[in-house]
Design a protein around this nucleic acid. Structure first.
Length: 880
RNA sequence: GGGUGGUUAGCUCAGUUGGUCUAGAGCGUCUGGUUUACACCCAGAAGGUCACAGGUUCGAUUCCUGUACCACCCACCA
């Protein structure tokens, strides 16, 4: 016999082990069944399971279990991510702290540091793997991948090479986002904006003497960058400055630096803001860089880099060289003041670019980097040549890819509209290294010094398998020191994980060969649904679409399901830096069970919307799991007392008995089960997980337990009970796999296997009986009315009473259900007739087509009732 | 500045093609309760002019327009 309460702790790990050992998670590429594939968004290899993962795992496990039970060849491919910058900085910090080494990069060198990071990842990878299992995730561990696997590296190199050949990847000297803390570039999407209170300084840029009239003033929040100016920009229609446009000036800055600037007219200037002029600093502002590019011909002087990679002022900053940006700013302003040029100093709120990774301000600096061109029309898609940008738009616009909820399509398009070339190179060591090799010898031999268009320069080789010697001159080559943005390899995730690792060692094969000869890729790609938080729509979803359509000619997935972010009880974001705001799934699971946690994150939530999670909510679903447990216990006890073996109970026998023979409640139950199957299936197929979960919850608790089981007491049909329970367990299994699998072992038919492999039920028309359902509802309403009246008139709960029911329409029906009404309403004398009659001293309830009366004489003590009412009146008066 | 979402019981939220919504759930509250599983339970109850103002309609929480407040995304360091 089952324990009185369900204990997930003694069950879950055992069940998971059983599943895993049985091979139930394993997908078969040779199968002829329709495939259903989910690529698990790979958690950070060194990470800890948090609620974001938990939501993802719960949702995807529901998709995959449902598909598996529906008879599809279901593959859920798990994996971990090398999380380039994040991991490298964690390990560096660890070494700094534990080994007291200030600069581990300098101390160990590249090879050794990378080895140490790999070692650290290796060690900690096991943690996240076991934590994923804790959630009940039925993923195919035999196909686990890691974004730094050699086979994935092969894919990365192949794609890089293909893009290089197509001219989609190029090296360019540009103003990039430099993270001074992490000492690397970051992409535009890795920037966050924060409003900070700053100062806007207005100063005299050109004197009255220089302009020959009014002095020209410029406003800036970054005076120190003015040392790198080579122009002043004004609006073409601005009459104040029209006479200066095209003229060159010499400016002497504090710090003893002299610069030549040209006054240039450009429409990007807002005449209303500040003085209507901009000091143009091409090397420390992307906007200014663009302006410079537009007016290169007119501008006399070259721009100057005055801030270095270390965040300190460069030699070009004259006396300020070596100072920090902040210090220089202060000195510079003081200098202006001394020169008598400072006109105004006001505070204002300015947006500040912050690195998503280090949370430090981003410094725009000029650098030679690798970029992916998103506008070049060389991608063949649906027989047309398009740019990457256009393909990104096309696949969603044409509904090849659907996003749930669909409003995110708009967000997606908006992002694409603003998309610029993607900077993919990073100055860190942990990651996929740029597969480009340089031969100094050949490069030096070449006289071109044009940095901007150096993509096909001599001595530059892109190699998939690596290169030692230059193919031209035979001298040794050096590999590009940079690594690729972590999203470059993540962008390949849906298919690089399906490439046969045995093939990737064979360099005689090209990318199309690899794709064509990998059975997993052929069977399981494109994947069916990609599920992730909406916060990485741009970072990852869009990148996967970009990289995959280009590299494989296929979309990466058909549907994108975006879940909301988990928030605290107060609606705040849970942040790692403040553990008190976090709910730790690893603490919750032992306490409430993974099943309860899963349901609490799915039911009552809608995709794309944030939701708040707190312990009581999880507790509520723990209670539900326990309710299901106890209902099963009851069914088991019923079987026992009727001497029926639950394993040999025959479901189909019940259904074939013919609906006429079964009692009303049984007919209604059978019929309701068909509705349930239909509705749950429909909801799940439409990815409406909350709806299906809620339906199941309410069916089990409010209908099956509260009414059917109560009605069945005393005249239970064990066969039918077992049949109903089996159906419930099957339908609930995707939501709460552990408890249902455990209970299934007590109820499964003799020849059945584990629940995880049980076929999904199909609703049977012949079991449907709308009349029975309606009739049962009438009976339920009558019983509820009696109970309600009893409570209203404070009838002793244990007292047996008299009840009178008048109903022309339902008299016959109610008569046939007399025993149920009597038992559940605690009625001793029940009179049912079809004619309404007048009664005195009765409590009455009027239902549609039915009246329920309880004679009060004798059941309630009127004197006691008077005292009670008097007291109540008293209380109310006091309250008033 | 551009865009998106939210505003429904004390709290957290469902409500998918406008009429079984005289508006639902969970938690909380109140009144009772050892009834052949379950107190992680059972029975009963209270509690909402579905943000506000217009419009379309026979009829709107549901569609349209506007307003307010709260989130979020994107752009912008003059």
């Amino acid at each position: 016999m089952l324990e009185k309460a369900y204990d997930p702790q003694v069950t879950e790990d055992r069940i998971y082990q059983m599943w895993e050992d049985s091979g139930a998670f394993k997908a078969d590429a040779k199968s002829t069944k329709e495939s259903f594939t989910v690529s698990m968004p790979p958690p950070n290899a060194t990470g800890q399971l948090h609620l974001g993962h938990a939501v993802m795992l719960a949702l995807e496990d529901i998709f995959i279990r449902f598909a598996r039970m529906q008879g599809k060849e279901a593959l859920w491919l798990p994996g971990t991510d090398h999380a380039a910058i994040a991991t490298e900085s964690v390990v560096i910090k660890k070494i700094q702290k534990e080994e007291k080494i200030r600069d581990p990069r300098a101390k160990f060198g590249r090879t050794e540091l990378v080895r140490r990071i790999a070692e650290f990842v290796e060690k900690s990878q096991g943690t996240i793997r076991s934590q994923i299992r804790k959630m009940g995730s039925s993923c195919d561990w035999s196909r686990e991948r890691y974004t730094m696997d050699p086979s994935l590296n092969r894919c990365v190199n192949e794609v890089f090479q293909k893009m290089y050949k197509d001219g989609l990847i190029y090296q360019g000297f540009r103003v990039v986002n430099w993270d001074t803390a992490l000492q690397t570039t970051i992409s535009d999407d890795e920037i966050e904006y924060q409003d900070r209170e700053g100062t806007l300084w207005t100063f005299e840029y050109l004197s009255a003497e220089q302009t020959g009239g009014e002095p020209l003033a410029v406003a800036t929040s970054r005076p120190e960058t003015k040392l790198g100016d080579n122009a002043i920009i004004v609006h073409p229609d601005d009459e104040r400055y029209a006479h200066l446009v095209g003229r060159h000036f010499e400016v002497l800055w504090p710090g003893g630096v002299t610069r030549h600037v040209t006054v240039v007219a450009d429409h990007s200037v807002d005449r209303e803001f500040g003085t209507g002029t901009i000091g143009c600093t091409p090397y420390h502002s992307k906007i200014d860089y663009e302006i410079w590019q537009r007016h290169k011909e007119e501008i006399f002087a070259d721009p100057q880099q005055v801030i270095g990679e270390d965040g300190l002022m460069t030699e070009n900053a004259g006396d300020f060289a070596g100072l920090s940006v902040e210090k220089c700013r202060q000195k510079f302003v003081e200098g202006l003041q001394k020169q008598g040029k400072l006109l105004k100093e006001e505070t204002y709120v300015q947006p500040l670019s912050i690195s998503y990774r280090s949370k430090q301000p981003v410094e725009p600096i000029p650098k030679l980097q690798w970029f992916i061109d998103v506008n070049k029309k060389v991608v063949v898609w649906k027989k047309k040549k398009m740019s990457l940008k256009e393909v990104l738009q096309e696949v969603v616009r044409s509904k090849d890819i659907c996003i749930i909820p669909d409003r995110f399509e708009k967000t997606y398009f908006q992002w694409i509209d603003n998309l610029q070339d993607w900077c993919v190179s990073r100055q860190i060591w942990w990651g996929h290294r740029v597969p480009v090799f340089y031969c100094r010898n050949c490069m030096d031999a070449q006289d071109s010094t044009d940095q901007g268009s150096g993509i096909r320069d001599q001595g530059v080789y892109v190699s998939v398998e690596g290169l030692d010697k230059c193919s031209e001159c035979g001298s040794s080559v050096t590999q590009d020191p940079d690594t690729l943005d972590t999203w470059f390899s993540s962008g390949l995730w849906t298919w690089s994980t399906l490439i046969d690792p045995v093939l990737t060692g064979d360099y005689s094969l090209d990318l199309p060969d690899l794709l064509a000869q990998s059975p997993d890729f052929q069977k399981f790609h494109p994947t069916t649904v990609m599920e992730t938080g909406y916060d990485i729509l741009f970072f990852w979803i869009a990148r996967m679409i970009l990289m995959t359509t280009y590299a494989t000619g296929q979309i990466p997935f058909k549907t994108v399901y975006l879940h909301g972010l988990v928030r605290t009880r107060d609606g705040k974001k849970m942040s790692k830096s403040d553990p008190s705001t976090c709910i730790d799934p690893l603490e919750i699971i032992p306490k409430y069970g993974a099943d309860a946690l899963r349901m609490s994150m799915i039911v009552g939530q809608s995709p794309g919307n944030d939701f708040r999670l707190y312990e009581e909510k999880i507790g509520g679903y723990r209670n539900f799991i326990n309710k299901l447990w106890n209902a099963s216990r009851f069914v088991l006890m019923t079987c026992e007392s009727a001497d029926v073996d639950p394993h040999s109970a025959e479901g189909s026998g019940i259904r074939d008995q013919g609906s006429g023979k079964l009692p009303l409640a049984d007919r209604a139950l059978l019929s309701s089960l068909q509705d349930l199957i239909e509705e749950v299936t429909n909801s799940l197929e439409g990815y409406r997980l909350s709806e299906a979960g809620e339906r199941l919850y309410s069916f089990v608790w409010d209908y099956f337990c509260d009414w059917y089981l109560e009605l069945s007491k005393g005249e239970a049909n064990p066969q039918l009970l077992v049949h109903a329970l089996r159906t419930i367990l099957i339908l609930l299994h995707p939501y709460c796999p552990f408890v249902t699998e455990e209970l299934w072992s007590h109820f499964k038919p003799k020849d059945a296997g584990m629940l995880i492999k049980e076929p999904w039920p199909v609703a049977e028309k012949k079991s449907k009986n709308a009349q029975a359902q309606q009739d049962l509802q009438i009976v339920i309403n009558v019983i509820s009315a009696i109970r309600s009246l009893r409570a209203d008139y404070n009838v002793e709960p244990s007292a047996l009473i008299t009840a009178i029911i008048h109903s022309k329409k339902y008299a016959k029906l109610l008569e046939s259900q007399r025993s149920h009404i009597e038992r559940l309403g605690r009625v001793e004398f029940l009179s049912i007739d079809s004619q309404p009659q007048q009664h005195e001293h009765v409590a009455s309830a009027f239902l549609k087509d039915t009246e329920v009366h309880l004679p009060l004489e004798g059941i309630i003590d009127f004197s006691k009732e008077c005292t009670r009412l008097a007291k109540e009146q008293d209380d109310l008066q006091k309250f008033l």
